[in-house]
Amino acid sequence: MFGVTVSVVQFGGSNCDRDAVRALGHLGVDAERVWHEDGLPDDTEGIVLPGGFSYGDYLRAGAMAARAPIMEEVRDAAADGVPVLGVCNGAQIGSEAGLTPGAFTTNASARFQCEPVHLRVERTDTPWTAAYDEGDVIEVPIAHGEGRFEIGDDAYDDLVADDRVLFRYCDADGNVTDDANPNGSTGNVAGVLGERETVAVLMPHPERATLPDVATSTDGAGILEAFA
């Protein structure tokens, strides 16, 4: 869709940056890791905030990285229409930085959870989901301790009314149920859009469901294909 050069922003404690670069490379996307202190390269046309444990999850997951100077550049780029995708810790960073609504906090289980989950695609008219059909169920893994989406009742109503929910946790048949909700997220929300449809965050890891040699599912490739 975008056909862009992607900067994968690496903070101290990021650990999915290489995976993201490799998965994007597999899809033919030119991507490179960028150390946060170096700022965004001039040729940045797309941005991935990768997973990991930036700053050891101090204070709240993503809280420190969200206040790093490079995030000013990321916010400006996002406002200019540069596509930005936050994955897992990158989703926490994105929401802490105000790129997307809501917050990701401690799983209802109080445990770190690493497991495959099913997601229902709620919209297909966004760059991140153009590869799917409406109602598609995709399998993508999660790996997080703080992935429970919280937003407050009124703001949740606004989120739904504005059609900014991108993915919901569901069962294999696409039913959005409590049993299929791995972390107690409000409305089973797994991923949301920012003010622009070119900005999105999600807790599951599409880069871990892209490479056929290492992944049991390649369903996540469609999300990263937005950059292709």
Binding site: A63, E96, P101, T105
Partner: peptide, 9 residues
């Protein structure tokens, strides 16, 4: 407001 708390939660 700016760091120690997250006003959403």
């Amino acid at each position: 407001e700016r760091l120690l708390a997250n006003p959403t939660i």
